[in-house]
Design a protein around this nucleic acid. Structure first.
Length: 460
RNA sequence: GGAAAGGUGGCAGAGUGGUCGAAUGCGCCGGACUCGAAAUUCGGUAUAGCGGUCUCCGCUAUCGUGGGUUCAAAUCCCACCCUUUCCGCCA
């Protein structure tokens, strides 16, 4: 969420910076809502002040045993007027809030302006892709004989699910364990175990909601009664029959909320970052560095047909996440550090990769600056995203009301950063493809061998 | 799932319709005392929004959340959420 003061004072400049990332801010709508808000708020507050003083007078008069009918007559009807004004103010503020919740973050000045992936800037390339003296296979062909089973995954759950058996399941676990150990032992992150199901508020805090509901999986509790109230059902029916689908969805969603429906996390950035929601942390506690190995669940709506083969794009994948919660002055240092923390994993695994600085048009909703790490996949003859590290500045912190006490003792918004360190599934893909041998076996990277019981290669 | 208790400031905890944003204690900040510290003592100490004559002042909101009653709600009523304890079930 952007600072509403920035929008009030500098609307044109903010709009121009948003334009750079392809977001058209509705300036007229904002101005109109702000105008309405201003009048509604001053009028409401005047009425409230009038009510408060009159009520106080009544209290004083009564304690003295005086007659209060004159003052009572004065405030007659004030209640109705006040109620109407308060309702109008609440409406306008809700509208402003929802407008604000849907505006993406401002890009940092060092971010290249661009429209798409094509405008991203390669920062550096590390490692040399291996030369193969045999015909290389992609990870599905390498992995299938070793226990990668897409058919069973599909049988159990559907497309974009995978079952792993035997050595390859162990390799997957070894990768996650290794990454977690490096992040905790070498980079100073605190290991966390977090819930995989979270409430709505948590997802609003990190920015997945309200805008990206369709990217998430949502559950509902079966223990509660699923009955609608009679009038609710009638209203829902009316909304549906009149073809007002927005209204229908709103009503269903509000009903759903009351059923205790929780969402599956799309990344543990959500849970780790939300640990500081509604907190005022001590400045000495900064930076807070957290890591977790969790599954991530994504509906992948709108990506039909993309990466349908293999385990590049799954509904469920594991990830070791890094989150830093820092003083605003050090967030850009922290961003560079975190890129290094993710790179160290790739270096240790001896996987060739490149670091890419995302352009304004390719960044995520909450990011002010993002680096992607892309790993070399020989079968695709290209680099593919394996990590994404972002500085969200105060964008999430403002939604979360996550603050610290500054030198003046005043609460001030923190900066939040998150990054993958790394995506485990895609790392497995990279290992399978880069370490494949002519005989169909896969060599185990040296650093993983202790996690594999000393095994140097896996074979069918 | 059943029963009970409870959710108040950074923390502990009082307040059960009226000058209550809220006693008191702890913590924190500043002063006094002291060579210095501790102890003692005095004063200060929430957040957000709006407005102004804008290093200051005024107004408004906030006592789990949402609604209701009332001229007036931390306090009364309703619904929900959460926490704790006991019982049941359970990995």
């Amino acid at each position: 969420m952007l600072d509403i003061q920035a929008l009030r004072n500098d609307l044109d400049q903010v709009a121009a910076r948003l334009q750079a990332r392809g977001y058209a801010l509705d300036i007229a709508a904002f101005n109109r809502l702000e105008q309405e808000r201003k009048t509604a708020q001053t009028q409401t507050q005047d009425l409230q002040a009038k009510r408060n003083t009159s009520s106080k007078q009544i209290g004083i008069a009564k304690s003295k045993g005086e007659d209060v009918s004159a003052i009572l007559a004065e405030v007659a009807g004030l209640g109705e007027q006040l109620k109407a004004n308060e309702a109008r103010l609440a409406d306008v503020q809700a509208e402003l809030q929802s407008l604000l919740l849907n505006v993406p973050n401002l890009p940092h000045s060092s971010v290249p302006v661009g429209k798409s992936e094509a405008d991203n800037v390669e920062v550096r390339k590390v490692g040399t892709p291996r030369r193969f003296d045999f015909e290389i296979k992609d990870h599905t062909d390498v992995g299938t004989p070793l226990g990668l089973d897409f058919d069973t995954g599909a049988k159990l759950s559907g497309a974009r699910f995978t079952l792993m058996r035997g050595q390859i399941a162990r390799l997957h676990r070894a990768l996650a364990q290794y990454m977690l150990d490096v992040q905790t032992e070498q980079h100073g992150y605190t290991e966390c175990y977090t819930p995989y199901l979270v409430n709505r508020e948590t997802l609003v805090g990190t920015g997945q909601l309200p805008k990206f509901e369709e990217d998430l999986f949502r559950t509902k509790s079966l223990n509660t009664s699923l009955d609608f109230e009679d009038n609710e059902l009638r209203d829902l029916q009316t909304a549906f029959q009149s073809g007002d689908f927005d209204d229908t969805l709103t009503r269903m969603s509000s009903w759903f909320d009351r059923q205790g429906g929780l969402y599956l996390i799309p990344t543990s950035e959500v849970t780790l970052t939300n640990t500081v929601r509604d907190e005022i942390v001590a400045a000495e506690a900064l930076p807070i560095k957290l890591t977790a190995h969790t599954p991530c669940f994504r509906s992948e709506a709108g990506s039909y047909g993309r990466d349908t083969k293999g385990m590049i794009r799954q509904h469920q994948f594991d990830k070791v996440e890094m989150v830093q919660i820092v003083h605003p002055e050090s967030s850009y240092d922290a961003l560079e550090q975190m890129v290094g923390h993710a790179e160290n994993i790739l270096k240790a695994l001896e996987l060739p990769y490149r670091v890419v600085l995302l352009c304004t048009g390719d960044m995520g909703f909450g990011a002010a600056k993002t680096y992607d790490l892309e790993v070399w996949l020989p079968a695709q003859d290209t680099y593919r995203e394996i990590s994404s590290i972002s500085n969200c500045e105060a964008f999430q912190a403002r939604r979360l009301q996550a603050r610290f006490r500054n030198a003046q003792g005043k609460p001030e918004l923190l900066h939040t950063l998150n990054g993958s360190g790394l995506a485990v599934g895609r790392t497995l893909v990279a290992v399978l493809e880069n370490y494949q041998q002519a005989d169909g076996s896969v060599t185990i990277p040296t650093v993983l061998q202790p996690y594999m019981g000393g095994l140097q290669a896996i074979r069918a």
